[in-house]
């Protein structure tokens, strides 16, 4: 008798969420890349991170790649779009940080609007370290770009009401619910966001990210358990696509920032940063990430290749 491959069938399915006009996330009813078990849904997507200000804190290798365009977010976004073909652009409003340039929400909205007018791919709007300021920035940006289905990264426990009300309810964009690597908090925040009246198809989640070697096993097990609850237990509160801002974490750890003169035995600083970014991205993709945000063009290329090899 011929061997019949057993298939693990789940009752649950991840919600399909459309970013922008036609970038679809989620829809899978199997564990990540388990095409032999059933429907993998939409394949994971890659976004490139840009800033609203010159990212002087970036390690030299990655900063050099963008040195001719980093003074203007529109130029930078178009450069990425044309040269590296990402699925979306993530604009991070670091300039809004009250401890830094403290740019006003109106200034940020102006930049976001220009980007939306000049870039074809959808946008993910990310904030700075200050959640209170982010709520104000997101409100203005969402107001300037209503019903675009852009993702706002993110709503956290301390600002979800304000972010959810403006981004999701008033201006019809997508709310990313961010928790800090805690399974029960991830579920709780999703429930709270839903209770504001936001539909699951207008939500994504960031369960919390870390670079490989920095508590990464907690990230991975949290994501695994989120996916198992969503698929096995049909937990609708967790059937939400996951977006992981990999580059935010992977480029600030010592492996990525220590200059070669200080750590000659570690080799090229740029290569290390890329390696950290790729390893982190592949790890979270293997645990169910539906979208990753990356910084270095080489990482984009490798991770895209990885996704293609795993899905085609």
């Amino acid at each position: 008798m011929a061997y019949k491959m057993p298939a693990q069938k789940y009752s649950g399915q991840i919600q399909e969420v459309t970013i922008g006009s036609d970038l679809k996330l989620g829809g899978e009813s199997v564990l990540p890349f388990y095409s032999f078990d059933g429907d993998m849904g939409n394949k994971p997507v890659i976004g490139m991170e840009i800033w609203d200000i010159i990212p002087e804190s970036w390690p030299e290798g990655v900063l050099n790649t963008f040195k001719d365009v980093a003074d203007d977010p529109v130029k930078w976004a178009k450069y990425c779009e044309e040269k590296y073909n990402p699925d979306f652009i993530c604009i991070k409003f670091e300039g809004a940080n009250p401890d830094g340039l403290d740019k006003s929400p109106e200034e940020c909205a102006e930049v976001a609007k220009k980007l939306a007018e000049n870039v074809k791919v959808p946008l993910v709007i990310a904030g700075c370290q200050n959640n209170e300021k982010n709520a104000k920035v997101f409100t203005k940006v969402a107001e300037a770009l209503p019903d675009k289905n852009y993702v706002f990264l993110s709503a956290v426990e301390s600002n979800y009401k304000e972010v959810g009300a403006a981004v999701g309810m008033a201006y019809g964009n997508i709310v990313a619910a961010e928790s800090s690597v805690d399974l029960n908090l991830a579920k709780q925040l999703n429930i709270l966001v839903t209770q504001l009246g936001i539909k699951p198809e207008k939500m994504v989640m960031d369960p919390g990210c870390a670079a490989v070697g920095y508590g990464f096993e907690y990230v991975v097990t949290t994501m695994d358990r989120i996916r198992l609850a969503a698929l096995q237990q049909s937990d609708t509160t967790l059937q939400i696509p996951m977006i992981l801002p990999v580059s935010f974490e992977s480029w600030k750890v010592k492996e990525s920032i220590a200059p070669e003169e200080e750590m000659p035995e570690w080799g090229s600083q740029e290569d290390r940063g890329i390696a950290m970014e790729i390893s982190t991205a592949v790890g979270v993709l293997g645990s169910g990430a539906n979208a990753v945000i990356l910084r270095h063009p080489r990482s984009v290329e490798v991770v895209r290749n990885f996704i293609s090899e795993m899905t085609e």
């Binding site: 399974l183 029960n184 908090l185 579920k187 709780q188 429930i191 709270l192 209770q195 358990r225 609850a229 237990q233 937990d235 509160t237 967790l238």
Partner: peptide
């Protein structure tokens, strides 16, 4: 079912 503080509200 996975625990969340609001589990009774679901």
């Amino acid at each position: 079912n996975l625990y969340a503080d609001s589990y009774l509200e679901l």
